[in-house]
Amino acid sequence: MIKKLIYILVLVGAGIIMAQLFAGFSGSTELSETARYYVESGPEETGAANLVTAVIVTYRGLDTLGEVTILFTVAAIIAFFMKTREQRDKPKRRVSEILTTGARILVPGTMLFGAYIFINGHLSPGGGFQGGAIIASGFALMLLAFPQANLSHKTIRWVESISGFSFVIIGVLGIFMAGGFLDNSILPLGNFGSLFSAGAIPIIYIFIGLKVGAELSNVVGHMHEKQKEI
């Protein structure tokens, strides 16, 4: 009883703090100074139509690098904890044939859609993280349809390492050939709004997408337990 009272007191305290924070909020009608700089000089400097992409890949590119590193650490720890052991008890029921046939059509389509999303990240909504998540979803569908699939963690590791390495290499190239780390103007900016534009942003986003997709697929693949063939 006294425990519940303490819980409610904690909750009320948090609510009062939050209400104090919210009381100073009045809906903003114009951009702040930083945002104004990004909006006004972003299209000329980076050439990306999607300003969120411009902020993620170039202005705050170092954050993205750290974020991808966090994901890598998470995938490594989960791989350490979830060593897949061969299943001992009796195999489950057979997977429905409709699902396997559908998955044969849907899995490549899903992966292709993920690739489309991260290639077009600088023009339309989407980007490396979304595309990587969609690729991992396709991977999860594949694991659901073929539970005894022999997925090669080695290939995933290679894709992840190579894309992460290339991401850093492009960033370092920016120091020598352009203004700074992860500067995208090492390639010509091109026509604003076309597919081959915005300098190195599409290439960096492709690498981010491959890396995020490989890491999330690694997480899903380690949570999944391989089953015996029926």
Binding site: V55, V74, A75, F129, V212, L216, V219
Partner: peptide, 20 residues
Amino acid sequence: DPLPQALVLTAIVIGLGVTA
């Protein structure tokens, strides 16, 4: 404002990692 959106975009992915 594009800045909070970019922050939240990375935060969601990290949130998935933390949950897993």
